[in-house]
Design a protein around this nucleic acid. Sequence first.
DNA 1: TCGACAGTTAAGTGCAAAATGAAGTGTTAG
DNA 2: CTAACACTTCATTTTGCACTTAACTGTCGA
Lengths: 226, 226
Amino acid sequence: MENQFKQIATLIGDPTRATIMWTLLEGKAFTATELAIAVTTSPQNISMHLTKLVQANLLVVESQGRHKYYRFARKEIAYAIEAMISLVPPSISTQSTKTEKISGIKHCRTCYDHLAGKVGVALTDSLLQQQLLLDTSGGFEISPEGEKWFTEFGIPLTVLKQQKRSFLRPCLDWSERRPHMAGSVATALLDKMLLENWLRKTKDSRALTVTAKGKKEFQSRLGITI
Amino acid sequence: MENQFKQIATLIGDPTRATIMWTLLEGKAFTATELAIAVTTSPQNISMHLTKLVQANLLVVESQGRHKYYRFARKEIAYAIEAMISLVPPSISTQSTKTEKISGIKHCRTCYDHLAGKVGVALTDSLLQQQLLLDTSGGFEISPEGEKWFTEFGIPLTVLKQQKRSFLRPCLDWSERRPHMAGSVATALLDKMLLENWLRKTKDSRALTVTAKGKKEFQSRLGITI
DNA sequence: TCGACAGTTAAGTGCAAAATGAAGTGTTAG
DNA sequence: CTAACACTTCATTTTGCACTTAACTGTCGA
């Protein structure tokens, strides 16, 4: 197992392949040529690297006509890459400049079963600012006003509390580097937003798109401008 | 940030350095020479690699006389490595052979705030087998008999349930590749075992040692032979 | 049917970085 | 005080493997 780990580490560790993984974090599938452009290398070279990554079961390919679409073999791969990204030195310039273009997955995505990305963090921030959510030393807590808000939103808190699984906890966002809500409350919130058609899942990706209705609702209910 | 990620990936990705990280997962601090032996390379070489890892803030050094002790700079590093290990192909020979020597950290350790490693998994298995714990689709649940057991053990379940944090959830063990208990129940269980002197924390490591008393209690109460 | 395109395969090259050898500094133990 | 030890530094060698050049397979659009 030690050798297998070494193999995977060296596989991810090559600069070109690392950039491939970084690019694929986007969530969607990329063609070989798209990756070659994103990584700025030759088609032959990207082909070699992709072959290696597929052989190691880190990526999977899907042929469509003359194109080949590459993506992570399973979501654990993405989580491992995210874990590595979270090691990037907590530097001064971490707070990304406002001008930086935000790709789909960094904007709005699922993290296991709850909402993450810029929107997930913004949602949590909004609830905190309205004091519907309180940031205590032990994590997040829902205030009495918050309980009312969640109930009105259609989240049955009492039912969720009875569940044995995690109710509410902070989860660190790799792209925003800020905490956001996780736990059964966050899952229920995401489910409700999908059900109410605020958000829509994308095929083959953990990215979520905010619908027109969602934009309106985020604005009016939470003061969040998408 | 992309370049910083690439840097970290290549840093971990070198075979020698990957093995260093693997070795340090043990949790305890290693001297440069110990690592050179573990990795089977020369002192000069290990020195060079360790310097790089320290410069990147992945490791920290502590000088003690003529020795230098190296360990992970923060626990996130260990978690990232563990995430990478979890990518090791779900192969046939994953179920480790019984003869394989189990190092301290793989045997018994803390995972954030609860018990993990072989002992953590065995504890969970025992409770499941006695049907004090039930493995449902939504995670673990405590049976009525289980509630009695926990209460007798001195774990105030009703108090824990009122907490907003996760009550009980499965957590996948990287070394055993099997789930074990996490959440406030698991934390309370670990705290109690430390308080009752079943287990003892080790300095500078997430490894735990099972005391003589602990061995006896694990055997009689849970049928677990350490 | 043909040419442009997507991607692969094979052979050969180059270079960054890992390993090695030799010569240091600082520390401790006897 | 000296010798063994722990580790580092620097100059040199080695080498793995990423990348290139070139030739090829398969697919689509016109």
